[in-house]
């Protein structure tokens, strides 16, 4: 087996003087669904922001065999790394369709996803294609942010807390979309606070605590390890 698609080694990052990431190491393989779990403030979001080049880290991040530490966010995105931020940062004044078109990196390149494909998975978005993104419900906005990133045809998509604050029905829909994404050969790094869908869909999971990885294993292994769940995940 060659080098995994995304290889993070001994990643450190600081916000001012606080040492947020203290040597984070993990991998995401091609076509794999991997979850990064942990409570608020342990550095999950900082980890993906560091990968995207939004927070300057030290250590090594290799994507498709290339060192990406030091690249700017748009350069990282253009290599095929998609990022869905947790705050559902849609462009409120633009319509659903315009939001989706902004996700495309260029109009020439035909990727795995078209607007029509995504409308098929989410008929709700199709119905609201010409409404401003700002008036959508929280769940619809979450769908839109994921779909917008997919329009850029990433090979690996990193999704920050997609189920946060959503109704159980919407959580189901998000799970369905993630399965669809994986089916098209896109790797997924799912960042979650709760176990909700992570246990069900992940191939492997990592648990983070205080700036480093404290557990690595399969869903079954995590299920069996009550001590890790109690110490690092449950409230």
């Amino acid at each position: 087996m060659g080098e995994p698609m995304l290889q993070v080694r001994d990643l450190h990052a600081y916000y001012g003087k606080s040492h947020i990431l203290q040597g984070v190491t993990f991998d995401v393989g091609e076509g794999e669904i991997v979850s990064l779990l942990g409570r608020n403030g342990v550095g999950r979001s900082t980890t993906i922001k560091a990968i995207m080049g939004d927070v300057p880290p030290s250590g090594s991040i290799r994507f498709k065999g290339r060192e990406i530490v030091g690249l700017k966010p748009h350069q990282v995105a253009r290599l095929g790394l998609g990022y869905v931020p947790e705050n559902r940062d849609i462009f409120p004044g633009l319509t659903v369709r315009q939001n989706l078109l902004l996700g495309q990196k260029s109009t020439r390149h035909k990727g795995r996803w078209s607007v029509e494909d995504l409308f098929e998975v989410f008929p709700r978005l199709k119905e609201r294609a010409d409404t401003p993104g700002g008036v959508l419900s929280g769940g619809e906005q979450q769908m839109l942010t994921i779909c917008r990133t997919l329009m850029g045809d990433p090979d690996l998509i990193m999704i920050d807390e997609p189920t946060e604050g959503l109704s159980p029905m919407m959580v189901e829909l998000v799970g369905k979309l993630l399965a669809e994404i994986a089916e098209r050969g896109v790797s997924i790094l799912l960042v979650e606070q709760k176990l909700t869908i992570a246990l069900r869909i992940s191939h492997r999971l990592y648990v983070m605590g205080h700036g480093h990885i404290v557990f690595e294993g399969t869903p079954a292994a995590l299920n069996a390890d009550a001590a890790v769940r109690k110490e690092w995940l449950e409230v």
Partner: peptide, 8 residues
């Protein structure tokens, strides 16, 4: 920021 993350 969001626009940069989309590759622009």
């Amino acid at each position: 920021n969001t626009v940069a993350m989309l590759g622009h």
